[in-house]
Amino acid sequence: MKKTLKLIPLFTCLTLITGCVYHVGGNRDNHTANVTLNETLELDATALSQLNIDAGAGYLNIIGSDTNTIMVEAKIRTDEERRYTLTLKKSGNQAMLVAEQKSYGSWSGSSPYIDLTVTVPKTLALDIDDGSGDISISRINNSITLDDGSGSIEISKINGDIQLQDGSGWITLENINGNINVEDGSGDLTISNTSGNIYIDDGSGQLTVLNTSGKVTVDDGSGDITIENAGGLNIIESGSGGLKVSNISGQMNIGS
């Protein structure tokens, strides 16, 4: 999802039932994040199959639950002109959550952010484009696609495939029933207690895979690699760093 910044007229629309909140300011001179706000959005998800999220800076916590509603609790740090957008809308069988700051220049002092806690029906698929900040996702019984800039990522208790592209920050994936595809720039990566095949394209950082019934494929740049208790192993490139492999039940191929 490509993020664009536009200068638009001042308007305010608040509809908690449909889940739409806009706050946009036009003062170009004040860029200090000195205002803290709390917002809550709610959307009926009875007929929905997927939630798309476009988030900027801030913590993102997503929790699957036995519910028919998407509930968003947001803590917003912004300036006095409230230069942010927070919306939750339905389109067909999908919903779209947008949480981003509207900046027309550089910020001084404290940086703006929007921390999000999102409770969703656990059957919803997730497609997430996140800028910066830590991410936690748990208890989802569907696929997850995540494109993240920076910040730590923790994903657990998932019944579905995971497609993850990350710039920097440590990553922990555990208790995953599904295929995992990770493209990681830098930072330590740990994957444990999974079923399904795992493909990892890793730039730098320590890589650890423990207790998986699937085949593990690794293309690594630098950093130590540890693979223990896997159904199969194919190391395309181990790069620089130590390599520790044990208890591979299936076919094993180790390249350079």
Rank of each mutant, 00 (worst) to 15 (best):
T36F: 15
N61T: 03
L48S: 01
I53K: 00
R77D: 04
Y59Q: 07
E39V: 07
D54F: 04
T46Y: 02
L60I: 05
D54Y: 07
E73V: 14
E42K: 10
L43D: 03
T46S: 11
A47C: 07
T69N: 14
S65D: 15
L51Y: 05
Y22H: 15
N52E: 09
I63D: 02
L43G: 09
E73N: 15
T46A: 15
N27H: 05
H23N: 12
G64I: 06
E39S: 02
R77S: 13
I76G: 14
T69P: 14
V21T: 00
Q50V: 06
N27L: 10
V24W: 14
I53G: 01
G56A: 07
A55G: 12
N30V: 01
I76F: 07
I62S: 03
A33L: 10
G58M: 06
T67S: 13
D44Q: 07
S65G: 13
E73Y: 15
E39L: 01
I63E: 02
L37A: 00
M71Q: 13
I63Q: 04
A45Q: 14
N38I: 06
N68Y: 07
R28P: 10
I76R: 00
E73K: 10
M71F: 06
I63P: 00
V72D: 04
G58A: 02
A33Q: 07
E73C: 09
G64V: 02
A55S: 14
I76C: 13
N27G: 00
Q50S: 02
G56I: 01
S49P: 01
I53P: 01
R77V: 09
G64E: 08
T32E: 07
G26H: 12
R28M: 15
K75C: 03
N52I: 03
I70S: 09
L41I: 05
A55I: 12
A74E: 07
R28T: 12
G56R: 07
N61C: 10
D54R: 03
N52Q: 14
D54P: 10
V72L: 13
L60Y: 05
I62F: 05
G64T: 01
V72Y: 08
N34I: 06
V35S: 02
Y59M: 07
L43R: 04
I76M: 12
M71Y: 01
L43Y: 08
H23T: 13
R77G: 07
I70P: 05
D29C: 04
D29I: 05
E39T: 01
N61Y: 15
A55W: 08
V72N: 04
E42I: 10
A47S: 08
S65H: 13
I53E: 00
N68C: 09
I70M: 14
G58Q: 01
A33C: 06
